[in-house]
Design a protein around this nucleic acid. Structure first.
Lengths: 295, 295
DNA sequence: GCCAACCCATACGTTTTCGGTATGCCAATG
DNA sequence: CATTGGCATACCGAAAACGTATGGGTTGGC
């Protein structure tokens, strides 16, 4: 069964005439006549009654007409839907993000996305660094917001901003009186650390910072998330070195201070599989850049 | 948009491989590869991710797949439906019948039809002779049961039986004592007649019968239907000459007697437009013949 | 009552498209 | 490093579709 034949058939049925339909289809009358007869031969029964004043559907033709129109509409809709998905105008966008970025970015990002890709179903999942990577690779998330970027051959990265590292401490800490804390003052103080670099690359930035300034801070606790780290800081367990955006959503009683002499910062990046839906991702990228611009 | 391409696309999507799909489609791999790429070019976006171990649908491809399968199913269903209608296995059959035949034929005809054309919607309408003809011509009825047949160039006729003419009279009529009434005994008796031949051809058979036997019966009433005639006969208004099947459904108090020396009968015929659905009609014809066989 | 107009069907030559074979390219595998 | 598996490309022959020209049947007007 050929969809062109059905298209011709519907045109003839609507025009009630081969000649008129041929005109509308921008083709000559004889080939259309041939196609209709071929269709009738394929069906094995006449679809039209040939009168002297044009053509008229038989009952069999009527039965075919409704289905044929629907089939054509469905095929056209399928093409249209595929184009829309490819253009990033429809579909599903699943965003894996990390906890620290949630308060800072999502309130700006989500409305921006709804405006930019109104036909797309959005989905958000707070995921650990390793989970984000795994779920990007198996495509169960489309993009990930990472700090810092994921390093993997299949994964592409776009840096959309950066966050300076800041010292988080209880408000009653003596260091809290300083507007900026010199690196040397950290020597020997207890550190609340994130998982080691091989599990969470964010902590390697902190490690590098300390190493460069030859500062040693004993690790008194390792926690999974910045949120947990804040709790321990508040409890007086130690200090934490975290991206500035952790301030948003941090509990009262914790203050953040920049580190003097240390311009270290950590990249915020959007990560996605190289072979993913590029149009949708570039739209997401624009939104993410806007959301991060006024952090 | 070509349905073959969609067919190929669905095959490749299901096989997750061009080579496998080509095998299933009984064709070589390269042309299938070309067709898929043409489809992608038409859509304007890749529908598959080419991996080293086969093909995998992109999101756009998934959007197309569902619609494409449905469209194919609809097209196939359309062809199938058209064939079924043409074969008389589905569709609508509207039967125009006349009152006298209702009691005699419908109880046998309807079950016969339901058995013979189970997928067809049946419709029955009791119609006068002129209405039957008009509605056959405008196709609002498919077939008509007539007595006698309709005579019109566009209308085809099949004789399926005949009914002898009988004399209908009140049971207390003196003629009722005879097993068969000689034509001569009708001379001068009052006749309840149907509309004149130009309106109802049935009455021309009666007129011809009387003329041939040189019998004159004054027409005391003209009625539209045999049913009305029976009422007047019962009331003692006069006699009626009607097809034998009028006995069925006639009120008590009326008796029917054959006419001696007169083998006149009137044909029962099925009538339909020459260009109507032949398969359905020939099935109807078989059923009608069976229904009339044991009258 | 004949001629013109209309509409569909047929015939034939041309062009487009499709399918098959041969082959190349790339990546994964052993 | 060679082999295998899978898709892409190139080229050729075959089939299908389109256009032009034309025939045939019916309607409607002069």
């Amino acid at each position: 069964m050929d969809l062109r034949r059905l298209r011709y058939f519907v045109a003839v049925a609507e025009a009630r005439s081969i000649g008129k339909a041929a005109e509308r289809l921008r083709m000559a009358q004889p080939p259309l006549s041939v196609q209709i007869r071929k269709l009738e031969a394929e069906i094995g029964a006449p679809l039209f009654r040939r009168g002297t004043r044009g053509m008229d559907l038989t009952e069999a033709g009527q039965a075919l007409l409704t289905r044929a129109s629907e089939a054509m509409a469905l095929a056209a809709d399928g093409v249209e839907a595929a184009r829309a998905v490819a253009a990033g105008k429809r579909g599903r966008l699943s965003v894996g993000y990390m906890f620290v970025l949630a308060n800072a970015m999502l309130p700006r990002l989500i409305p921006e996305l709804r405006r930019s890709v109104p036909g797309v179903d959005l989905e958000f999942a707070e995921l650990s660094a390793s989970t984000r990577e795994a779920r990007l690779l198996d495509r169960s998330v489309t993009v990930a917001l990472c700090m810092p970027a994921i390093n993997h051959p299949e994964i592409q990265v776009a840096r959309i901003g950066s966050q300076p590292l800041m010292l988080a401490m209880p408000i009653r800490s003596p260091l809290a009186r300083l507007a900026a804390v010199p690196m040397a003052r950290l020597q020997g103080r207890p550190l609340i650390a994130l998982p080691p670099p091989e599990q969470d690359p964010a902590s390697s930035a902190v490690a590098a910072l300390l190493r460069r300034h030859q500062v040693v801070m004993p690790v008194v606790s390792r926690v999974e998330t910045v949120h947990s780290a804040m709790s321990l800081v508040l409890a007086g367990e130690g200090l934490a070195i975290v991206p500035a955006c952790a301030r948003l959503g941090a509990p009262r009683g914790i203050v953040f201070r920049p580190l003097r002499d240390a311009a270290d910062s950590i990249d915020i990046a959007v990560c996605w599989r190289r072979d993913s839906q590029s149009a949708l991702i570039s739209r997401f990228l624009k939104c993410a850049e806007k959301a991060v611009a006024r952090l």
